[in-house]
Nucleic acid binder design. Structure first.
Length: 561
RNA sequence: UGGGCCGUCGUCUAAUGGUAGGACCCUGGCCUUUGACGCCAGUAGUGGAGGUUCGAGCCCUCCCGGCCCAGCCA
């Protein structure tokens, strides 16, 4: 039978790569690169590109370089370099000694520019920024040639050298490619190759007073590194003819650029500028605020590298503009954590329960399973005593039909402990329930009744005397709208910030084993969700928990109806 | 309105010109010491009109809709 022969369907990029390998292009070599600009933190959209570039290289026995596209010293910083290195590693990828910077190529790029000048394919333009814009034309009208377009190579050379040597001020001149001012593709209307920027660069210091534009640097950098497949996002499709023009004019190694759609995720933003704004305006506490879609924030929230890689696998790679449902990301992390996270009992919104027929000073150690999905994770002891806490939501004095948790006169199971029956409801002057009195059935120790009687609900609980209080942060979506950036009435995305994106709980009651919880560990609080000990704010014996994601909650859906 | 790209279930994504499949979401049901997980089932799609063909999601034409480009940003 051929049933087991799995038919894999490749995305269009991998299809091209396999085709190239089959045809012996580049001698079967596969070389990709991930080329971030160090001007912000990486986000989940970058993860898609990272997984594609590093993933494809890995799959086809190739290499993937990490290269920082650092051609604009006014926006870039080593802080971002460091965070990017950390994030790519954390995602599980390695570049060995292939860590590069476009700034490594400034010398070579300068030589390339000289060559184009000598060949009459580049010229120094002395128009102002505004004039260049006017001369460029519009989407529907062709541009006009600059009056400086026909300077001689000798004059251009001298001017360009002068630019390099710092003889001119910022904005006085630029170097432009002599392509075609009438092209329908605006990128071909004599694009700027170099501008004067008397700025300190995070790597080259004050060595340069001119810096190449991205368009004059990116393609050649790929060429220098002999990248076989230059993968980038759709908006650069229009730039490809220009890159090819440069490569052609320079007669250097030609990489093949292939464009794919960048990731969009519902209920969040993935624009570096706007993420920066969220940080600078204080809507979040930083780039790694767990509500952010950055890699560092997802990590701090408790997302695992595997869950993100799996997410990227699931969403695929195409050229179609699309928005992935946030629930798919949530599914990825639940799926991963379900198999690996230790279960533990934690009461977030405590309601006191006194077991009236239980001895005052007795403590029993109940056996609890750490992970029903993985027996090798073993068991632990959880103390049980007369006074307990249960979740407020697990009791209703006047329950609707479909509520089958605790209610007056009703019997439920306390997980790994006993069946209890609610006998009395205690309230304060305002009628708020403050305490429950229950009886337990000693025969049901461990959670089973010898007479075989069933209960409909199993509740989590924590022994009051043994409980630990800890700060627990409940995170929710940052925005209330699926597409905060595209409001019909043009309202800014900041109008749609979710006021309930963060709830901090301090009056929580956790099982005592959590006292020793180390920072940076994933747990499942049974029946509630996955939580992660905050790596920054947790201290010895004083963990702080971030909610990664809730468990799926069927009852919440029923209740809403 | 110049140039480039893209239209398949609600959302993503598959389908040598030959039965439109999978995932997420959703809805039922089973199971359950997590209303979780798991399992079973269900709902639901080729933007439109022509054409080629025995046969079109796929090829051709036109139309409609969406995205990107007018930085000395990347």
């Amino acid at each position: 039978m051929e049933q087991d022969r799995e038919k894999k369907s490749l995305d269009f990029i991998r299809t091209i790569i396999e085709e190239d390998i089959k045809n012996g292009k580049h001698g079967g070599r596969v070389a990709t690169r991930f080329p971030p600009e160090p001007n912000g933190y990486l986000h989940i959209g970058h993860a898609k590109s990272i997984c594609l570039n590093f993933g494809a290289a890995r799959e086809y026995g190739g290499t993937c370089n990490l290269r920082f596209d650092d051609t604009n010293p006014t926006k870039e910083d080593t802080e971002y370099v460091q965070s990017i290195i950390k994030d790519v590693r954390w995602l599980g990828f390695e570049w060995d000694d292939r860590l590069y910077y476009t700034s490594d190529y400034f010398g070579q790029l300068y030589e390339y520019a000289i060559k184009l000048i000598e060949n009459g394919k580049a010229y120094v333009d002395s128009l102002t920024t505004e004039e260049i814009r006017e001369y460029r034309g519009t989407l529907s009208e062709p541009g006009r040639e600059s009056p400086y377009r026909d300077r001689s190579p000798e004059e251009n050379l001298e001017l360009f050298r002068g630019m390099k040597e710092g003889k001119f001020g910022e904005g006085e001149h630029v170097l432009r490619a002599k392509v075609d001012m009438t092209s329908g593709n605006l990128n071909m209307r004599d694009p700027v190759m170099y501008r004067i920027l008397k700025q300190h660069h995070h790597r080259t210091g004050d060595e340069w007073s001119i810096y190449p534009m991205y368009d004059f640097a990116h393609g050649q950098s790929d060429s220098i590194e002999e990248i076989t497949h230059s993968l980038c996002t759709l908006e650069f499709e229009d730039h490809r003819p220009l890159y090819d023009w440069f490569i052609n004019a320079l007669e250097i190694y030609p990489p093949r650029q292939i464009e794919f759609a960048k990731l969009k995720l519902s209920y969040t933003l993935l624009s570096k500028r706007k993420l920066m704004q969220l940080v600078s305006e204080g809507h979040v506490t930083g780039w790694d605020d767990p509500r952010m879609p950055t890699i560092s924030a997802l990590r701090r929230r408790g997302y695992t590298p595997g869950s993100i890689r799996n997410f990227c696998d699931t969403i695929g790679v195409t050229k179609q503009d699309s928005t992935i449902d946030a629930s798919l990301l949530e599914h990825s992390v639940r799926d991963d954590l379900n198999k690996t996270a230790s279960r533990v009992m934690a009461v977030l919104n405590p309601l006191k329960v006194v077991i009236t027929n239980y001895p005052d000073d007795t403590t029993e150690e109940m056996d609890a399973i750490n992970n029903p999905e993985d027996e090798s994770m073993g068991t632990r002891k959880v103390p049980f005593s007369k006074e307990l806490y249960i979740e407020r939501d697990d009791f209703m004095e006047d329950p609707p039909k479909k509520f089958f948790r605790l209610a007056p006169g009703r019997e439920v199971r306390l997980r790994y402990a006993y069946f209890i029956t609610c006998t009395e409801v205690i309230k304060d002057d305002e009628g708020n329930v403050t305490e429950l009195r229950c009886t337990y059935d000693p025969e049901t120790k461990g959670g089973n009744s010898p007479d075989g009687r069933k209960v409909k609900a199993t509740l989590h609980w924590v022994s009051a005397r043994h409980s630990l209080s800890a700060e627990v942060r409940l995170y929710d979506r940052l925005f209330t709208e699926a597409e905060p950036e595209s409001d019909k009435e043009g309202r800014p995305f900041t109008d749609f910030l979710n006021p309930d994106s963060l709830t901090v709980l301090s009056n929580t009651k956790l099982e005592p084993s959590l006292r020793e919880a180390k920072p940076g560990v994933n747990y499942q609080f049974e029946r509630l969700g996955y939580f992660y000990t905050d790596p920054e704010d947790s201290a010895q014996g004083k963990p702080v928990f971030n909610r990664t994601v809730t468990l799926r909650d069927t009852w919440a859906k029923v209740r809403q109806k």
